[in-house]
Design a protein around this nucleic acid. Structure first.
Lengths: 142, 142
DNA sequence: TTGTTTGCAAATACTTTGCATACTA
DNA sequence: TAGTATGCAAAGTATTTGCAAACAA
């Protein structure tokens, strides 16, 4: 998705489009992996020297509520990225080096045996972490 | 696992066995689900009125490092429970109501298709959330 | 007796809130 | 113009650290 599409999406949801929010859109459009609130703040600070942290938090929260961003709880804290554009149910493969994510359509719930008797599943998580081709090649080249 | 076994395990790892740590062992032996540091603090406060939060944090961290406890990042924060005693690789089914967990031997990695070309997986997460038989029955009985 | 554990106090990190001003629509 | 967004200051929550006294081995 390009920045304009993101801005449109935000606008459609009733958000007012400020310069900062345009920059946020550009930032997330360009981002390869996930970003922490701190990452976002630091990136934005280049352009807006008077930027405050609470505005970043507010916008991240709103953009998450609007479904523009996706929030992911890593061991080391919460991170954000653009909301996944895949329509069908899918899972993610995440590179531990560049944090790029790849969708996988395979879903283990379709064939899971051995659920406890009487257990009614309502949601599940399946994520694979590792190293993508590009990062492995770069690593090997050093 | 009973409290004595947990205490032995801690002792074997070189931890000194204080009254508080014995109580911690008892607490986790009895706990059905996961506990937040706050839960633990509040439980312990019944017995130790002068208890401080930092001691709870310290002990939880140490017991996690020693492999006595298991740490789980939920959306609403970090929680702890006894480290799983299953030997073989397995995954967890977690009840959203009582937080009781059940092991499942099935592992989706054994048959996952569609990994991006050249991606080398190093770890994965697979967790199923829902409601266990007991909680569903209790819910229905109301 | 030695070295670990504890409580206290304070520091740090992260996130949220109230309010006046600035800006979008 | 009406109402939202921003920066500032401050508060709230979660977690960590340094230190002296208490305690386990």
């Amino acid at each position: 998705m390009n920045p304009e599409e993101i801005v449109q999406m935000m606008s459609r949801q009733g958000m007012r489009i400020t310069d900062q929010r345009k920059t946020l859109a550009t930032l997330f459009a360009r981002a390869k992996g996930y970003m922490t609130p701190k990452d976002v703040y630091e990136q934005m600070l280049h352009t807006y020297s008077g930027l405050s942290f609470d505005t970043v938090y507010r916008n991240l929260r709103i953009m998450h509520e609007m479904g523009v961003l996706e929030q992911f709880v890593f061991e080391d804290g919460i991170k954000f990225r653009l909301h996944c554009q895949e329509n069908d149910h899918h899972h993610h493969v995440i590179c531990l080096s560049c944090e790029q994510t790849y969708p996988v359509v395979f879903c283990p719930m379709e064939q899971i045996p051995g659920l406890p008797e009487g257990f009614r599943p309502v949601k599940h998580k399946f994520e694979v972490f590792g190293y993508c081709k590009k990062c492995r090649e770069e690593e090997a080249a050093q």
